[in-house]
Design a protein around this nucleic acid. Structure first.
Lengths: 153, 153
DNA sequence: TGTATAATGTTTGTGTACAACCTATGACCG
DNA sequence: CGGTCATAGGTTGTACACAAACATTATACA
């Protein structure tokens, strides 16, 4: 029974990714690239670390995405002059125009996917989801603690 | 607002995958491999196409997973003698024992993740989720239809 | 019977997820 | 200072998601 719920979550996430990928195809960017670009747009300039905090992904993954975006002149990476470990990321003009052209349309798309779920139901859904994610988070951070404790021995 | 809901879905799916991956590490299989093995266990023998229907994934992906499982002697692939396009997949004895050792534990793990969500709340949650997935499915199959129509021109 | 078409799987190439390792820089502390 | 440690980020290797192209076999149908 519990497994069924996680199957639903996985399936819905997979379908959503497929839909967004198809939608973004015409703009020639991937879903992950879009997510990075739209976060950078909102909070420019951002360091890689800050992007990671928003997206909750891995630095190795992000590094690859940024490289591809930079190769296509969609982002600009530049060092901080005081702390030269930091890399600031900014959108190019092309990317800014691209993201602005996309954003409204994705909002419509998302709203359409939820057309059968009205306000109160949405709130209940979100509230349950937050409980689940909180527990997941507890379990995940417990795992991280264990591994760091072991390396400290 | 709608976007927030899909962010929750994606995040939860990601966390679940991370948790399962960590849990399965000690058995030296990946989450995707575990999913394939447990489906094959329930309905042996299965053709690749049938596994695809259960898992809703891609045939290219499955082909790779099965190759890796076969290399490690966890599954056995054999041709159908009547229709030689079909590949039947079966578990090896090792794999059968492995999956049986794992299954009970994952059930406990899943139940734990939902410990803060009681019966009625679960039902509401599932019912909302089913609506969302149904809409996603409609949009996805609309996309498929369009592409096949285009190729027919 | 022969030929076009469809169905089943594999292969190849790109992008992503993530662990493990590496580099370079900054911070702390004697 | 100088040495140790932590931090920011990149690199490498494995596995997965998926499109596109391919090989093989089955089926339909003229």
């Amino acid at each position: 029974m519990a497994e069924d719920i996680f199957r639903l979550i996985q399936r819905s996430a997979l379908y959503y990714k497929r839909l967004m990928t198809k939608f973004l195809e015409r703009f020639d960017i991937t879903f992950a690239q879009y997510q990075v670009l739209s976060i950078v747009k909102w909070h420019q300039p951002l360091t890689a670390k800050e992007i990671l905090a928003y997206l909750d992904t891995d630095k190795a993954t992000l590094s690859g995405i940024l490289s591809r975006l930079e190769k296509r002149d969609l982002v600009i990476r530049s060092e901080d002059k005081k702390d030269r470990r930091l890399m600031y990321v900014q959108l190019s003009k092309t990317a800014l125009a691209l993201i602005e052209a996309i954003e409204g349309k994705t909002a419509t798309l998302n709203e359409d996917l939820l057309k059968n779920v009205k306000n109160r139901e949405r709130k209940n859904f979100v509230s349950t989801f937050e409980k689940i994610i909180e527990t997941q988070n507890e379990r995940l951070s417990a795992l991280k603690k264990n591994t760091t404790e072991e390396t400290n021995k």
